[in-house]
Design a protein around this nucleic acid. Sequence first.
DNA 1: ATGTTGGCTAGAAGCCGACAA
DNA 2: TTGTCGGCTTCTAGCCAACAT
Lengths: 452, 452
Amino acid sequence: MKTPANGAGAASATSASNSCEGGEKKSINPELWQACAGPLVNLPPAGTHVVYFPQGHSEQVAASMKKDVDAQIPNYPNLPSKLLCLLHNVTLHADPETDEVYAQMTLQPVPSFCMQFDKDSLLRSDLALKTNKPQPDFFCKTLTASDTSTHGGFSVPRRAAEKIFPPLDFSMQPPAQELIARDLHDTVWTFRHIYRGQPKRHLLTTGWSLFVSGKRLFAGDSVLFIRDEKQQLLLGIRRANRQPTNLSSSVLSSDSMHIGILAAAAHAAANNSPFTVFYNPRASPSEFVIPLAKYYKAVYSNQLSLGMRFRMMFETEESGTRRYMGTITGISELDPVRWKNSQWRNLQVGWDESTAGERRNRVSIWEIEPVTAPFFICPPTYFRSKRPRQPGMPDDESSDLDNLFRRTMPWIGDDICMKDPQALPGLSLVQWMNMQQNPSLANTIQPNYMHS
Amino acid sequence: MKTPANGAGAASATSASNSCEGGEKKSINPELWQACAGPLVNLPPAGTHVVYFPQGHSEQVAASMKKDVDAQIPNYPNLPSKLLCLLHNVTLHADPETDEVYAQMTLQPVPSFCMQFDKDSLLRSDLALKTNKPQPDFFCKTLTASDTSTHGGFSVPRRAAEKIFPPLDFSMQPPAQELIARDLHDTVWTFRHIYRGQPKRHLLTTGWSLFVSGKRLFAGDSVLFIRDEKQQLLLGIRRANRQPTNLSSSVLSSDSMHIGILAAAAHAAANNSPFTVFYNPRASPSEFVIPLAKYYKAVYSNQLSLGMRFRMMFETEESGTRRYMGTITGISELDPVRWKNSQWRNLQVGWDESTAGERRNRVSIWEIEPVTAPFFICPPTYFRSKRPRQPGMPDDESSDLDNLFRRTMPWIGDDICMKDPQALPGLSLVQWMNMQQNPSLANTIQPNYMHS
DNA sequence: ATGTTGGCTAGAAGCCGACAA
DNA sequence: TTGTCGGCTTCTAGCCAACAT
């Protein structure tokens, strides 16, 4: 009686065997992490090039601390507003207490003088963008009051149960089975899945309340189930946007955190040494590590202007995506003193739908999709002589990087590029970046050598 | 039925009216904070001078992150191993999730050239040290398995109940009352206090389990009750030394945190501008903000040597203190490269009791009390001419700062000092500090101008 | 003096279909 | 199709003294 041989409860949560002690690291399931992070999050893969925005990084910290940046922070005049980096390493994590997902990235600044224009880097970065890993079967439901009350279980949406759960044996009366699912920490949760009621519906009963209380879920939070390639059931949670849990950190002052970010980036930039950042996709909409190709396309294929119409992706309630229409109402720097010529949230925008009260009124150029015809500019003058471009291009769906290459540098065949990418004519990408930093060229969002 | 007019439960936790929104700050009860922090914690009061050790600060962060300092951290050659600071502000906090207590301190470095020896500062700092606020009535109990199980309530130690709780009406059968206590966040907890059983004992029944589950307490954690000056009951918790909850922070990399600390301190030191630190007394034994007088006494009144015997205070299980005896086995810098001539944990020690496995083997000079006679040194040479000192002083209890003054600077009368402290002969305290930094004088822990 | 246990009981947790929306 | 509710059952939370240390 003192130590029961096995638990009497039908449902129990037992942590799996792999511990995180002794240097052994838990490996987070990437599909589950992605599902918890949301459909808009797209981490650049390790080995590709990215653009890092210290301003955005600082903003994420400010948001998670619920405290604005103070004036007390020293200036780091040698830290540019963006750093071209090689992304060495990406590891996925989940907070053991809250299941909050985040990613750890190791970045190494690429020194300006050795980064000749490397089409291969761009293509690899671009390829990674387009490689939409096939979303595994997946459903996400926002919990209702009934789902989270102690009065009952969880009402499973019909489509979801049929698509994700193993099929029930409908010869049983009522049809029921035991579901076993693992969370981000490989903790096993067991549920009784039953099809009953009048009208019939899928329900999770025994075991459900343990999960709700164990994860401290409330109505408004979301739960999601996915089935991995081995037909195993995985489940994750996504909390509603409550106020940040840690208003103050109790470890480091907000000032020290901001200083830490800037000083770490400045030190890394000065020495071209690697540094580590944490990206928390759900803490705030601050994607401050941008795939090089995404940044590149935004800067060099979109001719932006006041009044321009655009679309932008947002996440829907049930973890889908939808586009909202908006208009550019202003182009200006967010912090012209500290972050000169940064494109971080340099677009002021208005939204078509008045219900969009919570949508941000400042976005970055790589977040939007202009609805006017993309306006391809030419590479700098010494490249533009051979084939004068007619302004404006038709708005077709093939306006990706490959076409951009062919249009702006049509004399470069794919064969040559792929065989010997290092031998390309020396258009330095960093030269471009530097031009972005150059105030004399930055009156418009775009260096204006189109009709010079 | 849908919305009950008032809660049926006899015990309920309701947060008090003062919110932390709208700039209104919760003010933490200092006695309760102190009780939760433990008997050894002694925060210097605002307005006094302190010595700040960035190395110790860094250590606290390392401990709370469970990660050692990396080699990746840049050096801050202009940041000395200790900073003399004016403590502008001390605010007490408690983590709303875990009730972990911590203090926020605003420090302003005192520039070397304007800090002439200020006896007043020292005396004020010393006075604050000696002002042991009268400990309010107080008890602390480590929770047993029975205390935390769902099977029953809380067994109150007899002495504690009689000392702290309001007296019961023993004419009742059984004697019982309702106890109302507030925690650090001013949340009200209600308990039924009853005296019953065979043999009779004090118990907390109804309401207790709500507290245990609300605070997520487990056997081994401690609960403490105190009675403030208004006879109000306050209660706090102290968790057992489990593994740190936040192994990684999900906000800032460990490296960035360390850089943040160092860069913030370096920036403040360079500009003599204020900076903010968090001191978490229970995260790790890293008291990195030391009252000036305490530091001063340790450096200038203790002649330390290898083999020297000493006593040191530790906290006992039930929030008391006791002294352990030890021997100095080595005097060496913890990190001679990064932190030259720091006194941070520069003593290697052994402990008399073999049960002392968990006691630290490196301590700082101000943590110990030598059991040999204190060995007063003289102020630097230009001060020492008038009255040559005989080495060694009797070990009396009056070896405090006032006596130290009279002995080392007997020509300075109290009257003169108090009336015009600014007019004192120019013994710069910072000169001393700088000497501590000077390698040529730092062969022993103590500048050796005694018998020069 | 106080930690643990078995006995007992009140009340919450939790399973069910009914009934809307 | 699915959220909420009343009815009912089961089981745990929780009060008590006995007993042990």
